[in-house]
Nucleic acid binder design. Structure first.
Lengths: 303, 303
DNA sequence: CGGATTCGATGACTTTTACTCATGCCTGAC
DNA sequence: GTCAGGCATGAGTAAAAGTCATCGAATCCG
C-alpha cells in the first residue's frame, strides 16, 4: 500500500469544486477545464489517498461521508494557504510579513493602535504583535531583537539602536469641566497651589517634571494621586485632581469624553517621542511606510 | 505583474531544503535530484512569487531576509499539511477523522478520558472533542447530531438513537481508611444507620437509589451531603461521610488515593452504562475500534 | 602560478504530469 | 424511441519538471 502523499494542491481544489458543484460537468465549467480532466483528477486523488470519495451511482457521482470530512479539512488547508499568500504579498511590499512593536504607555492607548490599524488597512498580510512597557524596557526589547520597532520617550541613548525623533511637544493641563481653572485660557504653575494633582506612575517620583517645576517655584500642592497613565482622564473627570501631561496622550484619553477639558500650561514642559529600531533591522520599505503613516497621524493631534 | 499563485508544494519543499542545506548542490543530494533541478526550481519560485530569495554572490547562493521569513511561513504550512495527512490516514482507518464524545460525570473523570487516550494512541490523526453532561443531555446531544458518541446511564429510550449496553455492575461502599466499617468484608444497608452519607447531585433527590433502599428498610441516617460526583472521594477522605457508588466511578476516583477504601455493598444496587449513537451515524470501523478499546478498558476495573 | 575541485546557471533534451478531443455507454425525461 | 446530459476511457497533446552536458567563476592546495 503506497503512503498517503499530498503533493498536488490543484487536485484538492478540483475535488473541492466538485463537491460544491454536485457534478463533474458543472465543476469543469466552473474551473474552465474539461469534464474528463475533472474525472481523471478525481480518480487519481482517490488512488493517491486510498479512499473512495465518490460512489458511481446511476451515471452520477455521489459523495461519500469520507468526502464530506475531507472537504472540511481541505477548507482549513486552503485558509492556511491564503494566509501564506498574504504573507508573501506583504513580503513583496514591505520586505517583511511580521512586525513586533513595543510602545510606552503614553502612546499605547491611542496613537500606536491607530498607527497599527492604518498599517493593517494598507496591507492585510502583515502580522503585527504589540506590547506596552516603560521607555527603558522598550529600548531593551529592541536592542535584544525581541521587538522590531519601539516608540519611546526621548532622550534615550544606545549604540545598537537607531533613534529617530518624531515629535517634541508641550504639556497641557487636564481639568474637570466646570472647575474654576477651566475658565482660564492658560493654566500656570502658580494656579496649581493647593490643588490636588493626578500624576502618572514613575519608577521614581522624584523624576516627575511637574513636581520638579512646582518645587522650583516653591508651590505646595494639596496632595497627589499616582495612576497608570491610561486611567488619568477618568480620575480627573471624577474630581480626584487635575493633571498635566503631553497632548498626544491627553488627546487619546479624551476621545469621546466631554467631562474633561484641556488647557495650555505655562511655563513650558517639553516632551519628546521617537521611534527606535536596530541598525541591522533597517527594512527600508517597512520603515518608510511606518514613518509616512505616523506623520499623517501626528497631524491629527493639536500642536 | 502576475498575481502570487501558490500551486507547487514541491517547489516550496525544495526551497526549504535549500535554505537548510546552505547550497543547491547539497540540497540536490539531500532530495535525490540534480543540482540543476534545484537551480531551476528556485528561479521559477522567485519568478512566481516576485521576490528575490537568494543573492548570487561569488558563485554561491546567499539567502535574503525575505527568504528567512518565507521559510518560517513554509514550516507552518507544512505542519498544516501534515495534519491533513493524519486526518486522511484516520479517514482511511476509521471512516472519520473527527469524533465528538459526550459522557455522564460518573464516567468522565477516568473511564472515558482513558478510552480517548487509547484511541489517540492508536491513531494520532483523530481529532476528538469531549464534553461532560447528565445522561439525559447526552442522549439529547446525540439525537440532535451535536455529538457522535454518548456514554449514558441505562436505561434510556430513544427512537433516533442506537443503544448498546456495555456494563451492568453493582454498587460499592467508599469509606475513609480507619473507619469502623472499613474492617468489614461487606457493608450492608443496616450498617448505614446513623451514618453520614455523601451522595451525588441528582435533579431530584427522591431518585437516589441508596436513600430509596434505606427508606424501604426503615434505616434512618444521620445526615447527607450532596456533591458533584468528581468530589465525592475527597469528601469521604475528609471524613464528611461515607458513600455508595458504582465501582467504575469509584475506581477512577481512588486512583492514587490511599486514604479511602472500597468495600462490597449489600443488598445489591445495580448500575448499567451504555454507549449511544445515531442510527444514521453508524460508522462501522470507528465503532468497532471504540468497542474493542472500551471492552479492554472495562477489564481493568473490578467486577 | 597552475591544476583540481566545487559551485551555480543554462542550452538542449527527456520524462512525467496534467490535460484535451473524441467516443461509448448509461440514465432519465418526454 | 429520441434526445440531452452524465461519467469513464483511449489516444493524443501540452505543459511542467526534471536530466545531461557544459561553461564560467571561485576557492583551495601544492
Amino acid at each position: 500500500m503506497p503512503d498517503v502523499n499530498i503533493h498536488s494542491l490543484k487536485s484538492l481544489a478540483i475535488f473541492k469544486t466538485l463537491l460544491e458543484a454536485g457534478s463533474a460537468s458543472q465543476a469543469a465549467r466552473t474551473l474552465g477545464i474539461t469534464q474528463s480532466g475533472v474525472s481523471r483528477s478525481l480518480a487519481q486523488l482517490e488512488e493517491n489517498l486510498g479512499i473512495q470519495l465518490f460512489l458511481r451511482e446511476k451515471n452520477r457521482l455521489v459523495a461519500t461521508p469520507e468526502a464530506h470530512e475531507l472537504y472540511e479539512e481541505i477548507l482549513r488547508l486552503m485558509g492556511n494557504i491564503e494566509e501564506l499568500r498574504h504573507s508573501v504579498l506583504a513580503l513583496k511590499e514591505f520586505g517583511t510579513s511580521r512586525l513586533r512593536i513595543a510602545a510606552i504607555p503614553g502612546l499605547a492607548f491611542g496613537f500606536v493602535p491607530r498607527l497599527i490599524g492604518t498599517l493593517l488597512e494598507q496591507n492585510r498580510g502583515f502580522s503585527i504583535s504589540f506590547d506596552m512597557m516603560s521607555s527603558h524596557d522598550v529600548l531593551r526589547e529592541v536592542e535584544s531583537g525581541h521587538a522590531d520597532i519601539g516608540f519611546v520617550t526621548l532622550p534615550v541613548s544606545s549604540r545598537l539602536v537607531r533613534i529617530e525623533e518624531w515629535l517634541t511637544t508641550h504639556a497641557r493641563c487636564l481639568l474637570p469641566r466646570g472647575h474654576a481653572l477651566a475658565e482660564k485660557d492658560e493654566v500656570t504653575i502658580e494656579d496649581l497651589r493647593d490643588q490636588y494633582l493626578v500624576i502618572s506612575n514613575q519608577p521614581n517620583v522624584g523624576a516627575d517634571p511637574l513636581l520638579h517645576l512646582a518645587a522650583s517655584h516653591s508651590i505646595s500642592i494639596a496632595g497627589k494621586t499616582e495612576s497608570n497613565i491610561g486611567a488619568i482622564a477618568a480620575l480627573v473627570a471624577s474630581g480626584v485632581g487635575i493633571s498635566v501631561m503631553n497632548p498626544i496622550t491627553a488627546t487619546d484619553q479624551l476621545v469621546g469624553r466631554s467631562d474633561v477639558v484641556m488647557r495650555p500650561f505655562a511655563p513650558t514642559i517639553s516632551f519628546s517621542f521617537g521611534m527606535v529600531y536596530r541598525e541591522d533591522w533597517k527594512n527600508v520599505r517597512a520603515l518608510d511606510s511606518i514613518r509616512q503613516t505616523g506623520n499623517e497621524l501626528l497631524k491629527t493631534y493639536p500642536d
